[in-house]
């Protein structure tokens, strides 16, 4: 039962994030929403992979039944990539704010079009 509750919660987290990207006007909120959906997928992957064992995948003496290390290693990569994308997106947002004076995506679009 808890399995389904966890999955359902992650599903909702993903939907909330997607809704933020889709409907929020503020670009900072959009970037955060992007992080939300990435986290939802990352946590889902690691959580599901951890159900097969009890211990962290560090094979010291006497450790058996470790969790699946593959999702953890892969998601490590995905997390770093997502951090990098976020950093650059925030820099872009800062740049947009400095050039157009707004965080609202519609305002920014309008002003960028006026300028060019």
């Amino acid at each position: 039962m808890t399995v389904y509750v966890e999955r359902m919660l992650l599903f909702l987290l993903f939907l909330v994030g997607f809704w933020g990207i889709l409907a929020k006007k503020n670009i900072i909120k959009k970037i955060f929403s992007l992080n939300l959906i990435t986290s939802a997928v990352v946590v889902l992957f690691i959580l599901e992979g951890s159900r097969v064992g009890d211990h962290a995948p560090i094979l010291s003496d006497g450790i058996e039944r470790v969790v699946d290390p593959v999702p953890q290693a892969l998601m490590l990569t995905a997390i770093v990539i997502s951090v990098c994308i976020t950093a650059f997106a925030l820099a872009l947002a800062f740049h947009l704010y400095k050039t157009t004076g707004s965080f609202d995506i519609d305002d920014i679009r309008k002003r960028a079009q006026d300028e060019s």
């Binding site: 064992g53 094979l59 470790v66 290390p69």
Partner: peptide
């Protein structure tokens, strides 16, 4: 997972399987 548990340490020399991957 089973492969890594059995062979991972010999293959890579790392006890931490995540590092090994």
């Amino acid at each position: 997972r089973d492969y890594l548990e059995a062979e991972g340490v010999q293959d890579s020399g790392a006890v931490n399987l995540v590092s090994a991957i």
